[in-house]
Nucleic acid binder design. Structure first.
Lengths: 351, 351
DNA sequence: ATGAAAGCGCTAACAC
DNA sequence: GTGTTAGCGCTTTCAT
C-alpha cells in the first residue's frame, strides 16, 4: 500500500532546464519541434538532461498553450459491428505515422448520445472528428461545422455536401448486385433495406429500384422490406416478412452484410435452402462472410480504406486550419469503388 | 472559404463571469461540481449566462489544474479482432455513466508499439489504462505500475500478481471443453494452442494436459501444436500440421475461436468433415461462431463483461488514488466463469 | 543564441 | 457567500 495523492508532476520542463543549466524557454525550443536557433552544444546538454530525468512533456499543458490537442475523435454507431471495427482500424493506420491520438466514442444509434459524444470531444479540444455514425441529422452536423469543428464524414453521406466525406459507390455496387442476380436468371428479385434515414441504405435501395425497371423485372411493394435496425435480428425479421408474402422472391439483395447474416439465419431456421430456394447478395464484405459454411456473396466496400482515407483527409484539413493565413478548401466527397464479390449464396461456385 | 486560424477560445469562464456579474471563481464553483456555498440566485444567473453563451468548459485547462484528465486509455492487440471489439464495447458500457472519455490504442502485437502507446497515453495524462494487450513483458508493466500508473489488466494474466486484473477461468473452461469431447467418446483428442508467452493460452494448454492424464487418455507431442499467431491463417496452418501427422486425432480443443475458425477453414478446404472426421471445440464464444453454417462449439468467456469489470475496477482505483490520504488496495485478480457452449462442431445437435 | 515574462483557461486556497 | 490571487506546465514573443 502506498499513498499517492497526486502531487505536482514529478519532472517538468523546469527540472530539465535546471539540470541542463538553461532556461525553460530554451528547453521548449528544442523539444517543441519548431525551427529555432539553439547551439548544438546546448541542444546536446538538454537532450542529455531529458534522458537522465526520463522527462515526458505534459501534452495537456502543451495543448492548452498551443490551442491544439493533437487528438482526433472517431464516432461510430457501435464498435461491436465488425464494419466499424474495420473502419476504426483504418483510422488507426492513418494515425500511426502521425502525432495524433485517437479518442473514441460510440453513439449506440441514438442522436442524443451522439450529440453528447460530440460535445464531450469538443470540450476535450479534439482537433477534428471522423464521423462514421449516421444518427445526427444534417442540420446539426452542419451547425457544428459552421462553428468551426473539423469533420470528415466516413461511409455516411449527407443530402447536401456540407462536409468532407469518404464514401463508397453505393449506387454502382447495388446495381452490380442486382444485375448479377438477374444474370443468374432470377425474375423476382426482392430487397431488404435498413432504416431509410441512413443515406447509404436509401441509395442502395434507389439503385435497386432503378435496376429492376431498367431490366424490366417485376417490381412490387411486397418485394421490398425495410428492416427496423441493422442488426442480425432485424435482418431475420425482415426475411421472415419477405418469405411469408404470398408470392416470395427467388432472390434477394440485402442492404448490408449484417442484415444478410440475419437472413441466412432465418433461412436456416425455416428450412429455406440458399441459394436453391433463395439467392442472396449482401453489401460491405465483412470478413465473416468469407467463412466456409457462410460464403456470403456481397459487394466489397473496404471499410478499412474508408477509415484510412477519412483520417488522412481530416489531418490535411486540420493542418490547413492551423496554417496561418490559410483558407479552408470547399467540402469534397471522395467516392471509393464498390465491387461485387460472388460466392456461394448467389449461386456461384464460391471461393 | 473562411479563414479560421485558431485564435483564443471563443467563450471562456471569464465571459460567463462578466455576463453573470460575478467573478471567475464563483462560476468555477458552480460548474466544477464541488460542494461550495453559492446563493441560489447567483447560481441561476450563472446557469443562465452559460446557456446564453453556450459555454463549454475547456477540459484541457481543467485537467491541467486538477491534475486529472478524466480520460482512460484502453490498449488491445487489434481492434479488428472481434474479441477485443467486444471487450472495448464493455469498457464503453462502464464509462457511459461516468465522466470519463476513452482514448484508444492498439499494439498490433508489437511490444515496442505497445510501449509507445503507453507513453503517449501517459503524456496525455490518462488517469488509468485498461490493458488487454499481451505483448509487454511483466517487468515493464510492473515498472510502470510502481511509477504510479493506474492499470487494470483485462483478459491477460501476469505470472505474478502485480496489478489488478480481470480474467476468465481458463483452467475450468479448458477442462470442460476436453471433458466434453471425451464424453462424446473421443480417445485421441488433440490441441491447438496460441503463442505460449500469452498466459491464457498457456493456462488452457496446461488444463488440456492435465485433463488428458486425469482421464487416462492418450497423450503425445504430435497431438499438441502451437500456432505462431492468433489469426485465422495461423489456425489453418496449425490444423494442417495436426491433420498431416501420421495418426491424427478425432477431436481437437482449440485455444481460441479465432484459431478455430481457421481450423474450420482448413477442414473445409481439405475435405475433412466436421464433426464426423474431426470434432472441434474453441474458446471465447465470439459471435461469429453461433452463425448457422458455423455452429462452433466453444467456451463462453464474455469479453464484454471482462471489459466492463476491468473499467469499473480501474475507475474505483482512480478514485482511490485521488481520495486524499487514501491508500491503494493490494492488487487483486477477479476470475469470471467460463462455461461450455455445445453446438454443432463437437457433435452436439446445435442450437 | 538565450533568457525573462506573460499567459493559455481553469481551479482552489484564502481573504473579506 | 463571493472575490482575489496564485499557479498547473508549457510555449512564445520580445529583449538582450
Amino acid at each position: 500500500m502506498r499513498n499517492r495523492f497526486p502531487a505536482t508532476q514529478k519532472v517538468t520542463i523546469a527540472d530539465v532546464a535546471a539540470r541542463a543549466g538553461v532556461s525553460k524557454g530554451t528547453v521548449s525550443k528544442v523539444l517543441g519541434g519548431g525551427e529555432y536557433y539553439v547551439a548544438d552544444e546546448t541542444r546536446e546538454r538538454i537532450s542529455a538532461a531529458v534522458a537522465e530525468l526520463d522527462f515526458r512533456p505534459n501534452a495537456i499543458a502543451r495543448g492548452l498553450k498551443r490551442r491544439r490537442s493533437q487528438t482526433i475523435g472517431v464516432i461510430v454507431a457501435s464498435i461491436a459491428n465488425p464494419l466499424y471495427a474495420e473502419l476504426i482500424s483504418g483510422v488507426e493506420e492513418a494515425l500511426a505515422g502521425s502525432e495524433y491520438t485517437l479518442i473514441f466514442g460510440s453513439s449506440e444509434g441514438s442522436a442524443q448520445k451522439e450529440m453528447a459524444v460530440v460535445r464531450s470531444m469538443q470540450q476535450r479540444q479534439v482537433d477534428g472528428i471522423v464521423m462514421a455514425s449516421v444518427t445526427l441529422d444534417d442540420g446539426e452536423v452542419e451547425k457544428q461545422i459552421e462553428a468551426g469543428l473539423n469533420v470528415v464524414l466516413a461511409s455516411r453521406n449527407l443530402a447536401r455536401v456540407v462536409a468532407d466525406a469518404v464514401v463508397s459507390d453505393n449506387h454502382a455496387g447495388a446495381t452490380a448486385a442486382v444485375e448479377h442476380l438477374a444474370e443468374h436468371g432470377h425474375k423476382r428479385i426482392g430487397h431488404i433495406s435498413g432504416p431509410q434515414d441512413v443515406v447509404p441504405f436509401a441509395q442502395r435501395r434507389a439503385a435497386y429500384d432503378e435496376t429492376l425497371s431498367r431490366l424490366s423485372l417485376e417490381t412490387s411493394d411486397e418485394l421490398c422490406v425495410i428492416a427496423t435496425a441493422t442488426s442480425l435480428e432485424a435482418g431475420a425479421d425482415a426475411a421472415i416478412r419477405l418469405l411469408d408474402s404470398h408470392n416470395p422472391p427467388t432472390a434477394v439483395f440485402v442492404g448490408s452484410d449484417g442484415l444478410a447474416l440475419g437472413v441466412l439465419d432465418a433461412c436456416a431456421k425455416s428450412g429455406v435452402r440458399v441459394p436453391e430456394d433463395l439467392a442472396i447478395v449482401g453489401f460491405d464484405n465483412i470478413w465473416v462472410g468469407r467463412m466456409p459454411g457462410i460464403g456470403l456473396s456481397t459487394v466489397e466496400t473496404d471499410a478499412r480504406r474508408i477509415g484510412r482515407r477519412a483520417a488522412e483527409r481530416l489531418i490535411e484539413r486540420i493542418d490547413e486550419t492551423f496554417r496561418e493565413g490559410a483558407w479552408l478548401h470547399e467540402p469534397e466527397v471522395e467516392v471509393l469503388p464498390a465491387t461485387l464479390v460472388a460466392r456461394r449464396t448467389c449461386g456461384c461456385p464460391g471461393d
